[in-house]
Design a protein around this nucleic acid. Structure first.
Length: 482
RNA sequence: GGCGGCAUAGCCAAGCGGUAAGGCAAGGGUCUGCAAAACCCUGAUCCCCCAGUUCGAAUCUGGGUGCCGCCUCCA
């Protein structure tokens, strides 16, 4: 079975066929940089990063572009609050974005276009839309004439006639007076006094939100791309408007596959779920979470649910993922031990059955939850055999173990799960010293001096050395963080 | 009001017509001087409710109920 992708446009899973064989052009709507990212943002970018990684693993050359919206009302407001320029605010949160996403092991995009760096292309697009009659200017603003685009609503399944009722409630906007139709949206907003502004044929101002993506996609990837992705909230109006803008000009589909990830929800005090968002004030920033959880435990948590299902955030669930991750990381860190056993840690991987089952799960619209079940099972098996080995039962088939380990590491990498450096490598005691302490403790135990024996054990533990007693052989030890 | 989605054990979650994966937590056990670690065992007679289709449904249809998202900035 080949890769199937759920396409929002058709509301079906479809076989994935890229425009050009072997190549994938992928565009993901990025963040508006006015604040730190929370776990919900983390979910989005971990999901699309994983999609990208999987496509890469299947041999596609993936061009991955993700924008930063660095011109926006919220950034403007934040700049005023902080007494900074809009540019400074944007720079600050772009840097923070990279820090956070690096820790989640999200690969860097091939390019990160920004609105401020795409002004000529944005202006050109608006100009084209105006000249073909899909846009009109009004008092310094430029609006898109939604009713001109016959297919408007095809992505979100919304119909203008039905939207009208809701729109009537927010009519008291001066902007509305300038619109020929309440559903028209701004392509260009005339600047108010004191705002950052760019010159344009329509006067000083800044682009509307939707137009930047149309311009960036076209500039960086072309008129039709393979995958256009983002959070499900962007489906309407953002992506709908992108389609209207781009397709009106090119007459070609903007994207072949539209993909949207579901939200991360939080259980509120009333006991019901609501999305994690800044406006609701119920968010956990990634950097706060990193204080309490390994980043990879968060990544694992985010991938344990398939991307189109909502995640209910809870500490309990997160701790469960942390447990899973601890074991997986222990296994991933086995490379030195394997080398010590004389086994290759860069050897062949086993395609059957692990990779096959993993791929089957991922081929089904990137079902990371099912894929992870395989991976966790494999990890558990390896951990079990490793534990038996260090407890005295030698590996039955070291070569096979090594190959399965390589398989495990390979699959973890596809999901972007990476073992960190052991955090606390306590002042490594010389082995001779450890052995001496063990000998002292053995003596104490022989004398049934349990207090002394326990004291020595505790003392070694404080230095990061864990003792493992055995029934019929001498006590062994290992590093606590392994 | 319109559109879309979800409802599976204490928690998370897969399942897409053939008789309930997996994980976390919990309980019991083995081992131990005691620990730690590890290992073993135990779990839904049932998948929100009610009808229906079918030899057979958690999976399909219809009707309920509950919850979520979008329709306004939002990942």
């Amino acid at each position: 079975m080949a890769l199937q992708i759920y396409n929002t446009l058709t509301r079906r899973k479809e076989p994935f066929v890229p425009l050009e064989a072997g190549k994938v052009k992928m565009y993901v709507c990025g963040v508006t940089v006015y604040d730190y990212c929370h776990l919900g943002h983390g979910r989005t970018y971990v999901v699309w990063d994983t999609v990208r990684r999987y496509l890469l693993s299947r041999g596609y050359a993936v061009m991955y572009v993700q924008n930063f919206t660095d011109v926006d009302d919220k950034i403007l407001r934040r700049a005023q609050q902080e007494g900074a320029t809009m540019e400074a605010v944007a720079e600050k949160y772009i840097a923070a974005y990279f820090e956070d996403m690096d820790r989640l092991n999200v690969l860097r995009a091939d390019s990160y276009p920004r609105a401020t760096q795409t002004m000529p292309e944005i202006a050109a697009l608006i100009d084209q839309l105006t000249s073909i009659g899909y846009a009109y200017s009004a008092a310094g603003d430029v609006y898109y004439s939604v009713r001109r685009f016959a297919e408007y609503g095809k992505l979100s399944g919304k119909h203008l006639a039905e939207l009208e009722a809701g729109a009537s409630e927010r009519l008291q906007d001066e902007e509305l007076a300038r619109k020929q139709d309440p559903f028209d949206f701004a392509l260009w907003k005339g600047a108010k006094p004191g705002e950052s502004a760019w010159e344009s044929p329509w006067g000083a101002g800044r682009p509307g939100w939707h137009i930047e993506c149309s311009a960036m996609v076209k500039k960086s990837l072309g008129e039709t791309i393979d995958i256009h992705a983002g959070g499900e909230d962007l489906q309407f109006p953002h992506h709908e408007n992108e389609i209207a803008q781009s397709e009106a000009v090119t007459g070609k589909p903007l994207a072949r596959y539209w993909m949207h990830n579901a939200f991360l929800n939080v259980v509120n005090q009333a006991g019901t779920e609501e999305k994690m968002s800044k406006s609701l004030g119920n968010f956990k920033t990634l950097r706060d979470l990193f204080e309490d959880f390994p980043p990879m435990a968060l990544r694992l948590f985010l991938l344990k649910t398939s991307y189109r299902n909502p995640i209910a955030f809870s500490l309990e669930a997160l701790k469960g993922s942390e447990q899973n991750w601890r074991e997986m990381e222990e296994v991933l860190r086995l490379a030195p031990w394997l080398a010590q056993q004389g086994q290759s840690v860069a050897g062949d991987i086993l395609f059957d059955p692990w990779v096959r089952r993993f791929n089957e799960a991922m081929d089904d619209d990137f079902n990371t939850a099912a894929a992870l079940a395989e991976l966790i099972a494999l990890g558990k098996q390896l951990a079990g055999r490793y534990h038996a080995a260090i407890h005295g039962t030698p590996l039955a088939d070291p070569v096979r173990f090594a190959r399965e380990w390589c398989t495990f590491a390979f699959l973890c990498d596809i999901l972007g799960l990476k073992a960190g450096e052991p955090e606390v490598r306590p002042s490594a005691l010389p082995e001779a010293e450890i052995e001496a302490q063990i000998a002292l403790r053995r003596q104490a135990r022989a004398e049934r001096n349990w207090m002394e024996a326990d004291r020595i054990r505790k003392q070694l533990l404080d230095q990061g050395i864990v003792l493992i007693d055995h029934k019929d052989k001498p006590t062994t030890w290992r590093h606590a963080d392994l």
